[in-house]
Amino acid sequence: MAFEDVVVGEARPYADKVVIEEYDPSWPDRYRALADQLHAVLGDTLRLVAHKGSTSVPGLAAKPIIDLVAAVTDSAAEPSYVPALEAVGYRLRVREPDWYQHRMLRKRIVDGADENAHLHVYTEGCPEIAKNLAFRDWLRAHPEDRDRYAEVKRELAKREWRYVQDYAEAKTEIIEDIIAKARAAGVEVPA
């Protein structure tokens, strides 16, 4: 399915270059502040929250956007969590009913939010959560793959992208290669 088919609101071309910054040791603290906020506003609706993506891997260069993965009882039941998230600056940006009922909400400082963040929401038990965390944990434990991934990201950042999602999708090959390596080493990673 094309990005234009799942985006909530207008699919606007990405006006800025993708910027990859060196690892910032403040990223884990920034994640913790966001996670605490999620616990406060969602209460028992929030079944899990974790730091994912490049900002969650010490030493890995990244776009300076904190990525979080969250589980709720039913991610398709947007009224149970989206209004509370909107009240603290998140905006629903992606709705993928055909892919694990995934929702992505974002906060942007340029829109008045306190932080730049992407929040990926799934239903509790979704295998995509375990896959994200297995990838993160592998990169944390294997600096050679972390550095190889960083190099691919830097190379891709030099290109022009219509949508930032195009940049994200261009990383699929290296991500799948690293996941295959983890599986070959005996790590249980959902398909």
Rank of each mutant, 00 (worst) to 15 (best):
V69R: 04
R146H: 08
P13C: 01
H118P: 07
A130S: 15
G59C: 10
E96M: 15
H142K: 09
Y122S: 02
E169M: 10
E21W: 01
Q165K: 01
S26Y: 06
A182E: 10
E169F: 03
S54A: 11
Y163T: 02
L46F: 00
D166R: 05
D177G: 04
Q101A: 14
E169Y: 07
I175K: 11
A134E: 11
D145T: 01
I66D: 02
A113S: 11
I179V: 13
G9T: 09
L42A: 01
A35T: 03
V19R: 12
V6P: 00
V121D: 07
A87H: 11
T73R: 02
H118E: 15
E155S: 12
V19C: 06
L48W: 00
T123R: 06
L42C: 04
V88T: 09
V7Y: 03
R136M: 08
L68C: 05
A15I: 05
E169S: 03
P97H: 10
P127Y: 13
D5N: 15
R93N: 11
L119E: 11
A134W: 12
V69H: 03
A70D: 01
T172V: 00
Y90A: 07
L85G: 06
D29M: 06
W161V: 04
E188W: 01
V121G: 09
E22I: 09
D145N: 05
D44C: 02
F3T: 06
E86R: 12
A11V: 13
H118R: 11
A180N: 10
I65R: 04
R47T: 05
R91Y: 09
A2G: 15
R30H: 03
D98C: 04
E160I: 02
A130T: 12
Y167K: 04
L139G: 09
R154Q: 06
G112L: 02
L156Y: 14
L34E: 15
A180G: 14
G9W: 14
A76I: 01
P28R: 07
